[in-house]
């Protein structure tokens, strides 16, 4: 049910997103049941995301869990407008434009001004040879700021907030530890107060103690910036800590979604039950 404008009740609304790689064919187009997991045995096309709909109210955090290959990273790239979908509609803040249909220039504006993204791999999110301060400024510049002092002060403020030693603002992030790099990424992502923040496996690969501190920081940002968040993780523990509601993805579709507590305490789908059991 694709509506043509966004519902004002939601800060973020995604309707029936489908991302297919490959040509598609009558077999997989008409009967998704014929797929072998997410792959069409006839034409070889992969349906990375199929008919996924998400809604998040302002300030709400939505968790998405699933294993590698479940389509959650593709979903995240589509939400950040890095991936052209096969079909679907995407609205922010009850807006009237389907963000999947806008011009490249408008897309760039939305990415720079309305969205913040934190990647699992900091090399995707940061310029490793630029000063950390400039990395934060980049987001401000892209959103139109042309004031050096203003941007520098904003970077300094965010560094204090993210508990990054102020002395390191001129250092490039390549000198930093993994946890510190994620802090710089978060500072950059929230630099111009975007209404929506996308977090893709942000703590994966970090030591447990470092993970805990980065998660603490995200919880603070969640509380104090009033930002709507989409948190993708293969780790149910991360989602339990951060998400109000959770969707479980497998083979490109959402198999179950609801309040995070409910999902954890009363998982209905067999796959979700396996996930929950393996966590405990």
């Amino acid at each position: 049910m694709n509506n043509i404008t966004g519902n004002p009740a939601f800060a973020l609304e995604l309707n029936e997103l489908t991302v297919r790689y490959g040509p598609g064919c009558p077999s997989c187009g008409e009967s998704p049941e014929s797929l072998d997991r997410n792959r069409c045995p006839v034409c070889g096309s992969v349906w990375a995301v199929r008919g996924v709909s998400l809604r998040a109210r302002e300030g709400e955090t939505l968790g998405i869990v699933g294993e590698s290959g479940s389509g959650k990273s593709t979903l995240m790239r589509a939400l950040h407008l890095d991936e052209a979908p096969t079909s679907g509609a995407y609205f922010l803040d009850g807006g009237e434009e389907n963000l999947f249909g806008v011009s490249p220039r408008r897309r760039r504006y939305i990415r720079d001004s309305l969205l913040g993204m934190v990647y699992q791999n900091p090399y995707l999110g940061l310029r490793m040879f630029f000063s950390s301060g400039a990395n934060v400024a980049e987001k401000l510049i892209a959103a139109g700021s042309r004031n050096v002092r203003g941007m520098t002060e904003r970077a300094e403020y965010l560094f204090r907030y993210m508990e990054i030693p102020f002395s390191r603002v001129k250092e490039p992030p390549r000198n930093f530890s993994g946890g510190m790099q994620q802090r710089v990424q978060i500072a950059k992502a929230v630099a111009n107060n975007p209404p929506v923040l996308l977090l893709d496996e942000v703590t994966t690969g970090l030591d447990l103690s470092v993970q805990a501190r980065v998660l603490d920081l995200i919880k603070r940002v969640q509380r104090e910036f009033g930002v709507t968040m989409i948190v993708v993780s293969h780790d149910l523990a991360v989602v339990r800590l951060l998400a109000d509601r959770t969707a479980v993805m497998r083979d490109g579709v959402i198999i179950e979604q609801g309040l995070t507590d409910r999902i954890l305490e009363d998982p209905r789908h067999v796959y979700t039950q396996t996930l929950v059991n393996s966590m405990l």
Binding site: G22, G44, S68, G69, S73
Partner: peptide, 14 residues
């Protein structure tokens, strides 16, 4: 080239 699993989740997919 067409294997999106390879593209999508470099090194993670089969």
């Amino acid at each position: 080239r067409d294997d999106p699993l390879l593209r999508m989740e470099a090194g993670q997919g089969d």
